[in-house]
Amino acid sequence: MQRVNMIMAESPGLITICLLGYLLSAECTVFLDHENANKILNRPKRYNSGKLEEFVQGNLERECMEEKCSFEEAREVFENTERTTEFWKQYVDGDQCESNPCLNGGSCKDDINSYECWCPFGFEGKNCELDVTCNIKNGRCEQFCKNSADNKVVCSCTEGYRLAENQKSCEPAVPFPCGRVSVSQTSKLTRAETVFPDVDYVNSTEAETILDNITQSTQSFNDFTRVVGGEDAKPGQFPWQVVLNGKVDAFCGGSIVNEKWIVTAAHCVETGVKITVVAGEHNIEETEHTEQKRNVIRIIPHHNYNAAINKYNHDIALLELDEPLVLNSYVTPICIADKEYTNIFLKFGSGYVSGWGRVFHKGRSALVLQYLRVPLVDRATCLRSTKFTIYNNMFCAGFHEGGRDSCQGDSGGPHVTEVEGTSFLTGIISWGEECAMKGKYGIYTKVSRYVNWIKEKTKLT
Rank of each mutant, 00 (worst) to 15 (best):
residue 203 N to C: 04
residue 351 G to Y: 01
residue 107 S to N: 13
residue 212 D to R: 11
residue 149 A to W: 07
residue 129 E to R: 04
residue 26 A to N: 04
residue 180 R to Q: 07
residue 444 Y to I: 06
residue 201 Y to Q: 15
residue 127 N to M: 13
residue 36 N to F: 10
residue 214 I to P: 10
residue 393 N to L: 02
residue 275 I to W: 07
residue 183 V to D: 08
residue 221 F to S: 15
residue 442 G to F: 05
residue 427 G to S: 00
residue 65 M to L: 10
residue 353 V to S: 06
residue 244 L to V: 08
residue 260 K to G: 04
residue 258 N to L: 01
residue 3 R to E: 09
residue 182 S to W: 09
residue 442 G to Y: 05
residue 281 E to V: 15
residue 439 G to A: 05
residue 443 I to Q: 04
residue 161 Y to F: 11
residue 450 Y to E: 00
residue 6 M to V: 11
residue 55 F to T: 14
residue 89 K to N: 14
residue 237 Q to E: 06
residue 409 G to W: 08
residue 288 E to V: 06
residue 335 C to W: 00
residue 4 V to E: 12
residue 354 S to A: 15
residue 59 N to Y: 03
residue 308 A to C: 06
residue 95 D to F: 09
residue 369 L to G: 07
residue 43 R to V: 02
residue 244 L to W: 02
residue 452 N to S: 14
residue 20 L to E: 02
residue 197 P to N: 06
residue 194 T to E: 13
residue 279 A to S: 03
residue 105 G to R: 06
residue 421 G to K: 09
residue 171 E to H: 07
residue 54 E to H: 00
residue 88 W to K: 03
residue 434 E to K: 11
residue 370 Q to I: 03
residue 208 E to L: 13
residue 80 N to A: 05
residue 167 Q to K: 05
residue 374 V to C: 03
residue 87 F to R: 02
residue 174 V to W: 05
residue 108 C to H: 02
residue 378 D to F: 03
residue 304 N to C: 08
residue 310 N to E: 06
residue 40 I to P: 13
residue 347 K to D: 07
residue 337 A to V: 03
residue 99 S to P: 11
residue 3 R to Q: 12
residue 126 K to N: 14
residue 400 H to T: 15
residue 61 E to G: 03
residue 203 N to R: 08
residue 387 K to V: 05
residue 120 P to F: 05
residue 174 V to K: 07
residue 336 I to K: 00
residue 230 G to E: 11
residue 274 K to C: 04
residue 122 G to D: 09
residue 141 C to S: 00
residue 77 V to T: 08
residue 34 H to N: 14
residue 297 I to A: 08
residue 119 C to E: 02
residue 423 S to Y: 15
residue 218 T to D: 07
residue 54 E to S: 01
residue 442 G to N: 14
residue 433 E to Y: 06
residue 279 A to K: 00
residue 301 P to G: 05
residue 147 N to P: 11
residue 458 T to E: 01
residue 405 D to V: 06
residue 386 T to N: 11
residue 336 I to Q: 01
residue 309 I to Q: 12
residue 288 E to W: 05
residue 336 I to D: 00
residue 411 S to Q: 15
residue 314 H to M: 02
residue 349 G to E: 04
residue 266 A to S: 04
residue 90 Q to Y: 10
residue 144 F to M: 06
residue 237 Q to T: 08
residue 376 L to Y: 06
residue 110 D to M: 10
residue 273 V to M: 15
residue 76 E to N: 01
residue 337 A to F: 01
residue 250 A to P: 08
residue 112 I to H: 14
residue 221 F to Q: 09
residue 101 P to E: 04
residue 323 E to K: 12
residue 166 N to W: 02
residue 176 F to S: 05
residue 406 S to M: 14
residue 86 E to D: 09
residue 12 P to S: 14
residue 383 L to A: 15
